[in-house]
Amino acid sequence: MRKTSARLADGREIIYFDESDAQRELRDPRDPAPPPTASELRFDPLLEEWVVLAAHRQGRTHLPATAECPLCPSGGGRQTEIPASSYDVVAFENRFPALAFGDPPYDGTEELPVPRRAGEGRCEVLCFAADHDASFVDLSPRRVRTIVDVWADRTRELSELPGVEQVFCFENRGPEIGVTLHHPHGQIYAYSFRTPRTRRTLDSAQRYRERTGRDLFADDLRAERNAGVRVVRRSEHWTAFVPAAARWPVELRIYPNRRVADLPELTDAERDDFSLLYLDILGRLDRLFDAPLPYVAAWHQAPVRTQRDLAYLHLELFSVRRAPGKLKYLAGSEAAMGVFVNDVLPETTAQRLREAAP
Protein backbone atom coordinates (compact mmCIF):
# COMPACT_ATOMS: atom_id res chain seq x y z
CA MET A 1 0.00 0.00 0.00
CA ARG A 2 1.36 3.41 -1.02
CA LYS A 3 0.52 6.29 1.34
CA THR A 4 0.71 9.89 0.09
CA SER A 5 -0.22 13.01 2.09
CA ALA A 6 -1.11 16.45 0.70
CA ARG A 7 -3.05 19.59 1.62
CA LEU A 8 -6.38 20.84 0.31
CA ALA A 9 -6.93 24.49 -0.59
CA ASP A 10 -8.10 25.39 2.93
CA GLY A 11 -5.20 23.62 4.64
CA ARG A 12 -6.94 20.38 5.54
CA GLU A 13 -4.91 17.21 5.16
CA ILE A 14 -5.81 14.58 2.55
CA ILE A 15 -4.14 11.15 2.47
CA TYR A 16 -4.24 8.71 -0.46
CA PHE A 17 -3.87 4.98 0.20
CA ASP A 18 -3.14 3.33 -3.14
CA GLU A 19 -2.94 -0.38 -3.89
CA SER A 20 -0.39 0.35 -6.64
CA ASP A 21 2.76 2.47 -6.88
CA ALA A 22 1.21 5.06 -9.23
CA GLN A 23 2.45 8.62 -8.74
CA ARG A 24 -0.12 11.29 -7.90
CA GLU A 25 -0.72 14.93 -8.76
CA LEU A 26 -1.26 16.40 -5.29
CA ARG A 27 -2.22 20.01 -5.98
CA ASP A 28 -5.75 21.19 -5.12
CA PRO A 29 -6.65 23.70 -7.87
CA ARG A 30 -9.46 25.33 -5.88
CA ASP A 31 -9.02 28.84 -4.52
CA PRO A 32 -7.62 29.14 -0.98
CA ALA A 33 -10.29 29.09 1.70
CA PRO A 34 -10.44 29.55 5.49
CA PRO A 35 -10.06 26.44 7.65
CA PRO A 36 -13.11 24.70 9.14
CA THR A 37 -14.90 26.26 12.10
CA ALA A 38 -14.13 24.95 15.56
CA SER A 39 -16.80 23.60 17.90
CA GLU A 40 -17.44 23.77 21.63
CA LEU A 41 -17.77 21.21 24.43
CA ARG A 42 -20.18 21.72 27.32
CA PHE A 43 -20.33 19.38 30.30
CA ASP A 44 -23.66 17.90 31.44
CA PRO A 45 -23.28 17.51 35.23
CA LEU A 46 -26.36 15.29 35.53
CA LEU A 47 -24.95 12.58 33.26
CA GLU A 48 -21.29 13.59 33.65
CA GLU A 49 -20.88 13.68 29.87
CA TRP A 50 -19.43 16.13 27.38
CA VAL A 51 -21.82 17.40 24.68
CA VAL A 52 -20.46 18.70 21.36
CA LEU A 53 -21.99 21.93 20.06
CA ALA A 54 -21.16 22.41 16.38
CA ALA A 55 -23.62 24.92 14.93
CA HIS A 56 -21.63 25.21 11.69
CA ARG A 57 -22.67 21.67 10.76
CA GLN A 58 -26.22 22.87 10.05
CA GLY A 59 -24.97 23.94 6.63
CA ARG A 60 -23.24 20.71 5.66
CA THR A 61 -23.96 18.99 2.36
CA HIS A 62 -27.15 16.90 2.53
CA LEU A 63 -27.95 14.08 0.08
CA PRO A 64 -26.74 15.81 -3.09
CA ALA A 65 -27.41 14.47 -6.59
CA THR A 66 -24.81 12.05 -7.91
CA ALA A 67 -23.41 14.72 -10.21
CA GLU A 68 -22.78 16.96 -7.17
CA CYS A 69 -21.25 14.34 -4.87
CA PRO A 70 -18.22 15.84 -3.06
CA LEU A 71 -16.62 12.40 -2.52
CA CYS A 72 -16.38 11.34 -6.15
CA PRO A 73 -13.10 11.92 -8.00
CA SER A 74 -12.64 15.33 -9.62
CA GLY A 75 -13.12 15.52 -13.38
CA GLY A 76 -15.08 17.01 -16.23
CA GLY A 77 -14.36 20.51 -15.03
CA ARG A 78 -15.80 19.85 -11.54
CA GLN A 79 -13.57 19.91 -8.48
CA THR A 80 -14.63 17.81 -5.49
CA GLU A 81 -13.11 17.27 -2.07
CA ILE A 82 -10.75 14.80 -3.73
CA PRO A 83 -8.58 16.58 -6.35
CA ALA A 84 -7.76 13.41 -8.30
CA SER A 85 -9.27 11.66 -11.30
CA SER A 86 -9.27 8.31 -9.49
CA TYR A 87 -8.36 6.76 -6.15
CA ASP A 88 -8.46 3.53 -4.17
CA VAL A 89 -8.97 4.61 -0.54
CA VAL A 90 -8.61 8.18 0.66
CA ALA A 91 -8.93 9.95 4.02
CA PHE A 92 -9.26 13.69 4.55
CA GLU A 93 -10.19 16.09 7.30
CA ASN A 94 -13.92 16.78 7.31
CA ARG A 95 -15.01 20.13 5.90
CA PHE A 96 -17.78 20.26 8.54
CA PRO A 97 -16.11 18.62 11.55
CA ALA A 98 -17.80 17.97 14.87
CA LEU A 99 -14.35 18.36 16.44
CA ALA A 100 -11.34 20.33 15.23
CA PHE A 101 -8.17 21.90 16.59
CA GLY A 102 -8.41 25.69 16.53
CA ASP A 103 -9.66 28.73 18.37
CA PRO A 104 -12.89 28.20 20.38
CA PRO A 105 -16.03 29.71 18.81
CA TYR A 106 -16.70 31.84 21.91
CA ASP A 107 -14.79 34.71 23.50
CA GLY A 108 -15.07 33.49 27.08
CA THR A 109 -17.15 36.44 28.29
CA GLU A 110 -20.47 34.62 28.50
CA GLU A 111 -20.94 32.85 31.82
CA LEU A 112 -22.49 29.40 31.89
CA PRO A 113 -23.59 27.22 34.83
CA VAL A 114 -21.59 24.29 33.38
CA PRO A 115 -17.93 23.81 32.35
CA ARG A 116 -17.08 24.50 28.71
CA ARG A 117 -14.00 24.20 26.53
CA ALA A 118 -12.96 24.18 22.92
CA GLY A 119 -14.16 21.16 20.94
CA GLU A 120 -10.66 19.98 20.14
CA GLY A 121 -10.09 16.81 18.15
CA ARG A 122 -10.11 15.69 14.54
CA CYS A 123 -12.77 14.26 12.24
CA GLU A 124 -11.78 12.48 9.04
CA VAL A 125 -13.86 11.19 6.14
CA LEU A 126 -12.69 7.83 4.81
CA CYS A 127 -13.77 7.04 1.23
CA PHE A 128 -13.79 3.30 0.55
CA ALA A 129 -13.89 3.45 -3.27
CA ALA A 130 -14.17 5.89 -6.16
CA ASP A 131 -17.35 4.19 -7.46
CA HIS A 132 -20.28 6.32 -6.26
CA ASP A 133 -22.81 3.47 -6.57
CA ALA A 134 -20.80 0.87 -4.65
CA SER A 135 -21.34 -0.18 -1.06
CA PHE A 136 -18.95 -1.82 1.42
CA VAL A 137 -20.46 -5.21 0.67
CA ASP A 138 -19.52 -4.77 -3.01
CA LEU A 139 -15.81 -4.34 -2.29
CA SER A 140 -13.20 -7.01 -2.96
CA PRO A 141 -11.45 -8.78 -0.06
CA ARG A 142 -8.27 -6.97 -1.09
CA ARG A 143 -9.97 -3.59 -0.77
CA VAL A 144 -11.42 -4.49 2.62
CA ARG A 145 -7.94 -5.50 3.75
CA THR A 146 -6.65 -2.11 2.57
CA ILE A 147 -9.37 -0.40 4.61
CA VAL A 148 -8.45 -2.41 7.72
CA ASP A 149 -4.86 -1.29 7.26
CA VAL A 150 -6.04 2.31 6.89
CA TRP A 151 -8.14 2.07 10.07
CA ALA A 152 -5.04 0.85 11.88
CA ASP A 153 -2.86 3.57 10.33
CA ARG A 154 -5.26 6.37 11.25
CA THR A 155 -5.75 4.98 14.77
CA ARG A 156 -1.99 4.96 15.30
CA GLU A 157 -1.37 8.43 13.89
CA LEU A 158 -4.37 10.18 15.41
CA SER A 159 -3.53 8.69 18.82
CA GLU A 160 -0.26 10.62 18.69
CA LEU A 161 -1.94 14.02 18.32
CA PRO A 162 -1.74 16.20 21.47
CA GLY A 163 -4.81 15.85 23.66
CA VAL A 164 -6.43 12.93 21.83
CA GLU A 165 -7.84 10.36 24.25
CA GLN A 166 -9.81 8.01 21.98
CA VAL A 167 -10.02 7.13 18.27
CA PHE A 168 -13.30 5.88 16.85
CA CYS A 169 -13.64 4.35 13.35
CA PHE A 170 -17.17 3.83 12.05
CA GLU A 171 -19.50 3.62 9.06
CA ASN A 172 -23.10 4.80 8.80
CA ARG A 173 -24.97 3.25 5.87
CA GLY A 174 -28.38 4.33 4.60
CA PRO A 175 -30.49 7.50 4.97
CA GLU A 176 -32.57 5.74 7.65
CA ILE A 177 -29.46 5.92 9.85
CA GLY A 178 -28.86 9.58 9.04
CA VAL A 179 -26.33 9.34 6.21
CA THR A 180 -26.05 12.65 4.34
CA LEU A 181 -23.84 11.40 1.47
CA HIS A 182 -24.58 8.24 -0.53
CA HIS A 183 -20.99 7.67 -1.67
CA PRO A 184 -19.42 4.65 0.12
CA HIS A 185 -17.53 6.14 3.05
CA GLY A 186 -17.01 6.04 6.78
CA GLN A 187 -15.61 8.42 9.36
CA ILE A 188 -12.92 8.52 12.01
CA TYR A 189 -13.23 10.68 15.14
CA ALA A 190 -10.32 11.56 17.41
CA TYR A 191 -11.87 12.68 20.71
CA SER A 192 -10.19 14.80 23.38
CA PHE A 193 -12.07 12.79 26.02
CA ARG A 194 -13.18 9.22 26.62
CA THR A 195 -16.69 8.70 25.28
CA PRO A 196 -19.49 7.81 27.74
CA ARG A 197 -19.97 4.35 26.20
CA THR A 198 -16.28 3.49 26.48
CA ARG A 199 -15.96 4.84 30.00
CA ARG A 200 -18.99 2.92 31.24
CA THR A 201 -17.98 -0.32 29.52
CA LEU A 202 -14.41 -0.26 30.81
CA ASP A 203 -15.56 0.64 34.31
CA SER A 204 -17.76 -2.47 34.19
CA ALA A 205 -14.75 -4.50 33.05
CA GLN A 206 -12.71 -3.08 35.93
CA ARG A 207 -15.30 -4.06 38.52
CA TYR A 208 -15.63 -7.52 36.93
CA ARG A 209 -11.87 -8.04 37.11
CA GLU A 210 -11.75 -6.95 40.76
CA ARG A 211 -14.61 -9.33 41.57
CA THR A 212 -13.53 -12.39 39.55
CA GLY A 213 -9.95 -11.84 38.42
CA ARG A 214 -11.04 -12.47 34.81
CA ASP A 215 -11.63 -10.51 31.60
CA LEU A 216 -15.25 -9.44 31.06
CA PHE A 217 -15.05 -9.33 27.25
CA ALA A 218 -13.23 -12.66 26.95
CA ASP A 219 -15.76 -14.33 29.23
CA ASP A 220 -18.67 -12.85 27.24
CA LEU A 221 -17.15 -14.15 24.00
CA ARG A 222 -16.46 -17.56 25.55
CA ALA A 223 -20.03 -17.85 26.86
CA GLU A 224 -21.53 -17.05 23.46
CA ARG A 225 -19.23 -19.51 21.69
CA ASN A 226 -20.10 -22.24 24.18
CA ALA A 227 -23.84 -21.56 23.92
CA GLY A 228 -23.67 -21.44 20.13
CA VAL A 229 -27.32 -20.47 19.64
CA ARG A 230 -26.54 -16.82 18.88
CA VAL A 231 -23.29 -17.39 16.95
CA VAL A 232 -23.70 -16.46 13.29
CA ARG A 233 -20.23 -17.25 11.93
CA ARG A 234 -16.92 -18.49 13.35
CA SER A 235 -13.59 -18.44 11.56
CA GLU A 236 -10.03 -19.18 12.54
CA HIS A 237 -9.50 -15.71 13.97
CA TRP A 238 -12.96 -14.13 14.49
CA THR A 239 -16.41 -14.83 15.94
CA ALA A 240 -19.62 -13.00 14.99
CA PHE A 241 -22.63 -13.34 17.28
CA VAL A 242 -25.87 -11.63 18.28
CA PRO A 243 -25.51 -10.52 21.93
CA ALA A 244 -27.90 -12.12 24.39
CA ALA A 245 -29.17 -8.71 25.52
CA ALA A 246 -29.32 -7.12 22.06
CA ARG A 247 -30.94 -3.69 22.06
CA TRP A 248 -31.51 -3.42 18.32
CA PRO A 249 -33.67 -5.70 16.12
CA VAL A 250 -30.52 -6.57 14.14
CA GLU A 251 -27.33 -6.42 16.19
CA LEU A 252 -23.98 -8.20 15.95
CA ARG A 253 -20.66 -8.16 17.74
CA ILE A 254 -17.57 -9.35 15.91
CA TYR A 255 -14.61 -10.24 18.15
CA PRO A 256 -11.12 -11.43 17.30
CA ASN A 257 -10.62 -14.77 19.03
CA ARG A 258 -7.39 -13.39 20.48
CA ARG A 259 -7.59 -10.39 22.78
CA VAL A 260 -6.06 -7.24 21.31
CA ALA A 261 -6.58 -3.68 22.52
CA ASP A 262 -6.93 -1.91 19.19
CA LEU A 263 -6.77 -2.21 15.41
CA PRO A 264 -2.99 -1.66 15.08
CA GLU A 265 -2.41 -4.81 17.17
CA LEU A 266 -4.11 -7.11 14.63
CA THR A 267 -1.78 -9.48 12.78
CA ASP A 268 -1.73 -9.88 9.01
CA ALA A 269 -3.56 -13.20 9.33
CA GLU A 270 -6.29 -11.64 11.51
CA ARG A 271 -6.73 -8.76 9.04
CA ASP A 272 -6.99 -11.14 6.08
CA ASP A 273 -9.51 -13.33 7.90
CA PHE A 274 -11.64 -10.36 8.95
CA SER A 275 -11.85 -9.15 5.34
CA LEU A 276 -13.51 -12.40 4.27
CA LEU A 277 -15.74 -12.84 7.32
CA TYR A 278 -16.99 -9.25 7.25
CA LEU A 279 -18.03 -9.39 3.60
CA ASP A 280 -19.91 -12.60 4.38
CA ILE A 281 -21.72 -10.93 7.32
CA LEU A 282 -22.66 -7.86 5.26
CA GLY A 283 -24.05 -10.08 2.52
CA ARG A 284 -26.23 -11.91 5.07
CA LEU A 285 -27.55 -8.57 6.36
CA ASP A 286 -28.68 -7.51 2.89
CA ARG A 287 -30.37 -10.88 2.33
CA LEU A 288 -32.22 -10.63 5.63
CA PHE A 289 -35.00 -8.47 4.14
CA ASP A 290 -33.98 -8.80 0.47
CA ALA A 291 -32.86 -5.15 0.42
CA PRO A 292 -29.81 -3.10 1.43
CA LEU A 293 -29.87 -2.92 5.21
CA PRO A 294 -29.21 0.44 6.89
CA TYR A 295 -26.63 -0.03 9.63
CA VAL A 296 -24.00 1.45 11.89
CA ALA A 297 -20.67 -0.39 12.08
CA ALA A 298 -18.61 0.85 15.04
CA TRP A 299 -15.14 -0.21 16.17
CA HIS A 300 -14.69 -0.29 19.95
CA GLN A 301 -11.00 -0.06 20.80
CA ALA A 302 -8.87 0.95 23.77
CA PRO A 303 -8.49 4.58 24.79
CA VAL A 304 -5.11 6.11 24.06
CA ARG A 305 -3.78 6.42 27.61
CA THR A 306 -6.07 4.81 30.20
CA GLN A 307 -7.52 1.35 30.89
CA ARG A 308 -5.88 -0.17 27.84
CA ASP A 309 -5.32 -3.41 29.73
CA LEU A 310 -9.11 -3.76 30.17
CA ALA A 311 -10.13 -3.17 26.55
CA TYR A 312 -10.87 -5.86 23.96
CA LEU A 313 -11.19 -4.73 20.35
CA HIS A 314 -14.50 -5.58 18.72
CA LEU A 315 -16.86 -4.36 16.01
CA GLU A 316 -20.46 -3.58 16.88
CA LEU A 317 -22.92 -3.61 14.00
CA PHE A 318 -26.61 -2.77 14.35
CA SER A 319 -29.61 -1.71 12.28
CA VAL A 320 -32.84 0.20 12.91
CA ARG A 321 -34.66 -2.06 10.43
CA ARG A 322 -36.93 -4.49 12.31
CA ALA A 323 -39.00 -5.81 9.39
CA PRO A 324 -39.60 -4.97 5.71
CA GLY A 325 -40.91 -1.40 5.65
CA LYS A 326 -40.61 -0.99 9.43
CA LEU A 327 -37.97 0.86 11.45
CA LYS A 328 -37.08 0.81 15.12
CA TYR A 329 -37.43 4.33 16.50
CA LEU A 330 -35.99 5.52 19.79
CA ALA A 331 -39.24 6.47 21.47
CA GLY A 332 -40.07 7.39 25.05
CA SER A 333 -38.43 4.55 26.97
CA GLU A 334 -35.26 4.52 24.87
CA ALA A 335 -34.81 8.25 24.24
CA ALA A 336 -35.86 9.55 27.66
CA MET A 337 -34.95 6.73 30.05
CA GLY A 338 -32.27 4.81 28.14
CA VAL A 339 -34.21 1.54 28.49
CA PHE A 340 -34.34 -0.31 25.17
CA VAL A 341 -37.34 -2.42 24.20
CA ASN A 342 -36.43 -4.91 21.46
CA ASP A 343 -39.25 -6.37 19.37
CA VAL A 344 -37.12 -9.23 18.04
CA LEU A 345 -35.54 -12.03 20.09
CA PRO A 346 -31.73 -12.18 19.64
CA GLU A 347 -31.95 -15.93 19.06
CA THR A 348 -34.40 -15.33 16.20
CA THR A 349 -32.09 -12.79 14.57
CA ALA A 350 -29.10 -15.13 14.86
CA GLN A 351 -31.03 -18.02 13.31
CA ARG A 352 -32.21 -15.87 10.41
CA LEU A 353 -28.67 -14.61 9.77
CA ARG A 354 -27.33 -18.17 9.77
CA GLU A 355 -29.99 -19.11 7.23
CA ALA A 356 -29.02 -16.08 5.09
CA ALA A 357 -25.68 -17.65 4.15
CA PRO A 358 -24.93 -17.53 0.40
Rank of each mutant, 00 (worst) to 15 (best):
S192F: 15
H237I: 14
T239Q: 07
F193A: 07
H182G: 10
R222Y: 14
G178E: 07
R225P: 13
Q206R: 15
A227F: 01
A205Y: 06
T198V: 02
I177G: 01
R230W: 00
L221S: 01
L221N: 11
R233N: 10
R233A: 13
L221V: 12
G213L: 06
A223E: 06
A190W: 12
S204L: 12
A218Y: 06
R197G: 07
Q206S: 13
V232P: 01
E224A: 10
A227S: 07
S235C: 12
R200V: 12
E236I: 06
T201C: 05
A227M: 10
T180G: 04
W238Y: 11
Y208N: 10
R207S: 11
A223K: 14
E210M: 09
F217T: 03
L181C: 08
G228P: 06
D215R: 05
T195H: 02
D220K: 12
H182I: 14
F193V: 05
F193D: 07
R209N: 13
S204R: 15
D215P: 15
D220C: 00
T201K: 07
A190E: 07
V242C: 06
I177E: 03
A223T: 14
P196L: 04
V242K: 03
R225E: 15
A190G: 01
G228E: 00
L202W: 04
I188C: 02
R194S: 08
V232K: 01
N226M: 14
D203H: 10
R199N: 11
E236F: 01
G178T: 06
R214E: 11
D203I: 03
R233E: 12
G186T: 11
V232G: 01
D203A: 11
I188V: 10
A223W: 10
Q206K: 15
R233M: 10
R207M: 15
L221F: 09
R197K: 12
A218W: 02
A190K: 03
A218H: 06
G213K: 08
Q206E: 14
T195Y: 10
P196M: 07
R225W: 04
T212A: 07
V232E: 00
A244N: 12
R207W: 07
L216K: 11
V242W: 05
E224K: 01
Y191S: 07
A244G: 04
Q206F: 11
Y208A: 09
E236R: 12
P243V: 00
P184C: 02
R194H: 14
A227P: 02
R214S: 08
P243H: 00
R225A: 11
R200M: 02
A240D: 04
V232S: 05
T212H: 05
R194G: 09
T201Y: 07
L216M: 15
A244Y: 08
F193P: 12
E236Y: 08
G186W: 04
L181I: 11
T201I: 04
T198W: 08
T198F: 12
G186N: 02
A223C: 01
F241P: 01
I177L: 12
T212S: 13
G178Q: 02
R234C: 14
R209K: 09
V242T: 09
E224S: 06
V242Q: 00
R197L: 11
H183E: 09
T195V: 14
L216Q: 11
A218T: 15
R199G: 15
Q187P: 00
R230K: 07
R211I: 11
L221K: 11
S204Y: 08
W238P: 01
S204F: 15
R197W: 06
A218E: 13
